[in-house]
């Protein structure tokens, strides 16, 4: 019972701060809008259609994954700030296990990301006529939650092991951009050169993007079962490493 309350306490703090930092809420909306309406609409004028959908529509599931990926990974930086400001100490000396502290933080980060997902779903419904059904909205939401948990865990691992915010930004860029570019978020993974195909195959995000595209647009490269299985194993691994990092903190 006390561990659940500990998780709740850590999550509650994150959620309250997220709601109070208006900048975070605003930037959460703007960057995906730029990708969809700036990048997607721009490139879309030169590309006829992909798999029967406009380019803008084709990358929409990928942009959702990207948004979750960026927000979740960057969330790890708050651990560094918390430690600099010593807030984390209060939590670390509490009689609550480090696993619970980790899970609380992880859920806090996932909450950030999922608020953005809700924006994106609304934008998709209103402006892009994305063919959502109530069921696919729920499926997409759960899939993105899974991706978010994995990515927040990676962010927290990096945050727990570094002491400077600058270092964090550097390291996270090396993780974030390759994961995004080689995930097929912006292009179909079906006819790539062998080396690019190999890179996309070992990138867990490829399966996330594929699953999302499957759920929303019905275009699948792998089966949804394989996508989900890969992501679940990956998420479990990252959570494990995350809890270990928090134990050493």
């Amino acid at each position: 019972m006390s561990e659940i309350e500990g998780i709740y306490a850590v999550w509650l703090r994150e959620a309250k701060i997220y709601i109070r930092e208006k900048e975070r809420l605003v930037s959460a909306v703007i960057s995906p809008l730029l990708w969809i309406f700036g990048f997607g609409a721009g490139i879309g004028t030169t590309i006829e259609s992909v798999g029967g959908y406009s380019y803008q529509m084709f990358i929409y599931p990928g942009i959702m994954v990207m948004t979750v990926l960026f927000t979740s990974l960057f969330y790890g930086i708050y651990v560094i700030w918390d430690r600099k400001l010593d807030f984390l100490k209060e939590v670390l000396v509490a009689p609550v296990s480090r696993a619970s502290v980790f899970v609380g933080k992880m859920l806090g980060g996932a909450t950030d990301a999922m608020v953005q997902v809700i924006y994106l779903i609304i934008i998709g419904l209103i402006f892009l006529d994305v063919p959502f059904t109530p069921l696919t909205i729920i499926e997409a939401f759960l899939m993105l939650l899974l991706i978010s948990i994995a990515m927040v865990s990676i962010g927290l691992v990096i945050g727990a092991n570094l002491t400077s915010p600058e270092g964090f930004s550097l390291v996270i860029n090396f993780v974030m951009w390759p994961m995004f570019f080689f995930s097929g978020a912006l292009f179909p993974v079906s006819n790539l050169s062998p080396w690019l195909a190999a890179v996309t195959r070992i990138n867990p995000m490829t399966y996330g993007v594929d699953a999302m595209r499957g759920i929303i647009l019905g275009i699948n490269h792998y089966s949804l079962l394989l996508d989900t299985a890969v992501l679940m194993v990956f998420t479990a691994m990252m959570m494990g490493i995350g809890i270990m990092s928090f134990r050493r903190m």
Binding site: S2, E5, G6, Y8, A9, L12, R13, K16, I17, R20, E21, L85, D86, F87, K89, E90, V91, A94, P95, V96
Partner: peptide, 21 residues
């Protein structure tokens, strides 16, 4: 100082209540 800036004094104490059972 390890109290949380973006929370109120009371909220800081409420969190402590949860964390310390």
């Amino acid at each position: 100082a390890s109290v949380d800036d973006l929370l109120t004094g009371r909220e800081n104490l409420q969190l402590h209540n949860l964390l310390f059972e």
